[in-house]
Design a protein around this nucleic acid. Sequence first.
DNA 1: GCTGTAAGCGGAATTCGATCCGCTTACAAC
DNA 2: GTTGTAAGCGGATCGAATTCCGCTTACAGC
Lengths: 201, 201
Amino acid sequence: MQDLPIAERPAELTERADAADNRRRILAAASELFARCGAEHVSMQEVARAAGVGMGTMYRRFGDRAGLTFALLGARHQAFQEQLLRGQPPLGPGASPRERLHAFGRGCLELLDDDAPLLAVASSQPSSLEGPNVAYRMHLSVLLREAGVRGDVEYAVETLLMGFDPRLHLHLRHERGWSLARVQDGWCALLDGWLAAPPAR
Amino acid sequence: MQDLPIAERPAELTERADAADNRRRILAAASELFARCGAEHVSMQEVARAAGVGMGTMYRRFGDRAGLTFALLGARHQAFQEQLLRGQPPLGPGASPRERLHAFGRGCLELLDDDAPLLAVASSQPSSLEGPNVAYRMHLSVLLREAGVRGDVEYAVETLLMGFDPRLHLHLRHERGWSLARVQDGWCALLDGWLAAPPAR
DNA sequence: GCTGTAAGCGGAATTCGATCCGCTTACAAC
DNA sequence: GTTGTAAGCGGATCGAATTCCGCTTACAGC
């Protein structure tokens, strides 16, 4: 939180005062509308009108709908990433890789449990394999190697990330009615499968 | 192939002659246009025009873009499913569950390798976790149990299915430049992780 | 062959995301 | 304070998916 979690500060520093104001108004309006009506029933038009800005302004700032969504989630996810890098064990450094990975998975799925409806709308976009996942990909990759996983670590990373897919999560939680704990346990079992795996093949 | 692979015949049997004709024309036009221009550059308008039908006709028949896509892929996937149920080992019955699962994964990924561009367009749709995956979900579920997997088999099934996500596949194959064999080996390693896993936790 | 009717049809209308573009304005330099 | 200019603005516009609805027609029953 104190210094740059990803590379995102420059944009805010060189931002014109009126632009910053609009940005805050758009985020506030989007947050309120999404919460009130459900993200999938709110059009970009409506957000723009509620924020008192034109369409051009929204798209200049956020690029597309997914961009707006990620920006909305930004604060919470940055705090989480901060914990991964500098927080207390078991999430932060100090615990064993396996413990950190378990804590990471459970934590991510907890965040996801709140954000899935929002993210599911964004995840059909081009940016979908990106967003916060870029940071998580690296985190997983490092810890899996530390934990001594043999075989194709990068493929393992991808499967573990797929476990955070918002549409999968909604499917399991709501269509299939699973508890969050069941999903978390499943993810940890998947992880342990990779940790225990013989050298592949 | 000889008798109903999924439940889909009734629609074709009660179909009016002109409707059947339109359906064939739409599929032919879509197939040709998708192949020539790339699925993502062809609008439903264009398919309709090329087939010589109105928009209403397309949507009455196929529901939405994803439906059209799945219909287009239907024949190949039904043949594959047929092989799973009644074909030669190792794909069909006769081999050990583990061998059948490996063959299944490799075969699916091979099909996917051709179809991913098409499926990726469809997979942002509501129908996305469905399509051919419904049948594959059951196949995996049965074979994993036969193979004696302990713990949450259903979660294992979902992770294995995520390995067939068309957008993941395109990402790995084209953005990351992996070979098909690497993806297949990765999937098999994932499978073996589940087969070898201790009772979870 | 005639006829009633449900299925099917075409294409206009609607909706929504995204882009475009000419006008406005904050603010740094002087 | 004035000024130049790049950044920012808004809303018209476009393109695509999907829905709607009044007309047409295949075909089962007679």
